[in-house]
Computed example of a mutant assay.
Amino acid sequence: MSAGRFCPQGARIAGLLLLAAALLSGCAGLPQVDAVRAARDRDQLPRRVELADVPFFPQQEHHCGPAALATVLVASGTAITPEALAEQVYLPGREGSLQVEMLAAARRNGHIAWQLAPSLVDVLREVAAGNPVIVLLNVGLRPMPFWHYAVVIGYDLDKGEVLLRSGDQRRKRVPFAPFDFFWRDSKYWAMLAMPPPRLPATANEAGYGTAVVAVERLGYAAEARQAYEAMLARWPESYLALMGLGNSLHASGRLAAAADAFRRASLAKPTDAAAFNNLAQTLADLGQWREALEPARQAVALGGPLLETSQSTLSAIEREVARLPANKVRKSSKKGEKKARNP
């Protein structure tokens, strides 16, 4: 982000809205607005949505970041205040909050931080799915930007406007064209802070898996498991989600469930040694040494960057199997033999 100040008050924003509307009144061919109109004409979005129950926190000076983040976190059921979040995201030297701090603060509060594609259609899709969206706007006069975080909580396709929780205004109506004008300087930056059991409407498997890992690394193991399970509800054969779930379950001591996840992962991606190695190790941890042999051998056969680890796993399992007592051969009775011949 370029240098500039953050979070002007409502009167300044209102005046700049009028200026932007005047500047854009004769303009045509705004790609973001055109894309929304095309989606409207194809009936790809509900005509009107408003998330009226989303809370409102009037912005204190320079604290639009904490206010916007508190809005979406409280909307998802997390009890937190803008004042508490200010300690996590507000940078006094910048008199505001950088995007990286907003994403990190969402994770520090056990939510999955999802950065949207630079698309107004995607923002409206999320709102239609019930997810308020934080956007970063430049409401300053160029070349000196004046950055402002707001929350999109609704839209009206027929009127061509978005609804915002913004500054000291609970329900700000902004036409699509001025909104595009203010939004573009942030490269159309937008984010969600998702509760782990839910997925964004616009999530993709690889990107969301990476976002879940970021939360898991902060120690939110239970939240990560919920997020992996949510991913599997949408993508049942997701290798990323199955491996993540298996590792999370193993770490929490739920070994049988972890083995099941790794087994499913090995079926989802049979060319990857990691799933077979993890399955073998988990079965070994369960004391199922003979059952662990085949996936351990498969991991070694596949080779790759984990070959040394796979070889170590196989060697350890083979040593334990060698210590096991030989299988006892039970002698069949004549009656049993007769039944075997004549089922």
Results as ranks from 00 to 15, higher is better:
5 R>T: 15
6 F>T: 00
6 F>V: 00
9 Q>W: 09
11 A>S: 09
13 I>R: 03
13 I>N: 02
14 A>E: 15
15 G>R: 14
16 L>W: 13
16 L>K: 10
17 L>R: 07
19 L>C: 13
20 A>D: 05
21 A>E: 15
29 G>Y: 09
50 E>T: 13
51 L>Q: 04
53 D>E: 11
58 P>G: 09
59 Q>G: 00
67 A>K: 03
70 A>Y: 02
72 V>D: 06
78 T>M: 13
78 T>N: 14
78 T>A: 12
79 A>Y: 12
80 I>E: 05
82 P>M: 07
84 A>K: 13
85 L>D: 01
85 L>G: 00
86 A>T: 01
86 A>R: 00
93 G>E: 08
96 G>W: 02
96 G>A: 02
100 V>L: 13
100 V>G: 14
102 M>F: 08
102 M>W: 04
107 R>W: 10
110 G>E: 06
115 Q>C: 11
116 L>E: 00
118 P>L: 05
119 S>K: 06
120 L>F: 08
122 D>M: 09
129 A>S: 13
131 N>S: 11
133 V>G: 00
136 L>R: 03
139 V>T: 05
140 G>L: 02
144 M>W: 15
145 P>N: 07
146 F>L: 11
148 H>D: 10
150 A>W: 04
151 V>T: 05
156 D>E: 10
164 L>Y: 00
177 A>W: 10
179 F>H: 05
182 F>G: 08
183 W>N: 09
186 S>R: 06
189 W>Y: 04
190 A>L: 08
195 P>A: 09
197 P>H: 06
197 P>D: 05
204 N>D: 14
213 V>G: 12
213 V>K: 13
219 G>Y: 03
227 A>G: 09
227 A>L: 13
229 E>T: 07
230 A>L: 06
237 E>V: 06
238 S>P: 00
239 Y>H: 07
240 L>G: 05
243 M>D: 07
244 G>M: 08
244 G>A: 06
259 A>D: 02
262 F>I: 02
264 R>C: 10
264 R>T: 03
266 S>P: 02
267 L>C: 15
267 L>H: 11
268 A>H: 01
269 K>Y: 07
271 T>K: 09
273 A>E: 01
275 A>N: 05
276 F>W: 02
286 L>K: 00
286 L>W: 00
287 G>A: 04
289 W>M: 05
294 E>I: 15
295 P>D: 05
297 R>N: 03
298 Q>P: 11
299 A>N: 04
304 G>W: 06
305 P>T: 08
310 S>L: 12
311 Q>L: 13
314 L>D: 00
315 S>L: 12
320 E>Q: 11
322 A>E: 15
323 R>I: 06
327 N>A: 15
329 V>F: 10
330 R>N: 10
331 K>C: 12
337 E>K: 14
338 K>E: 13
341 R>V: 15
343 P>H: 09
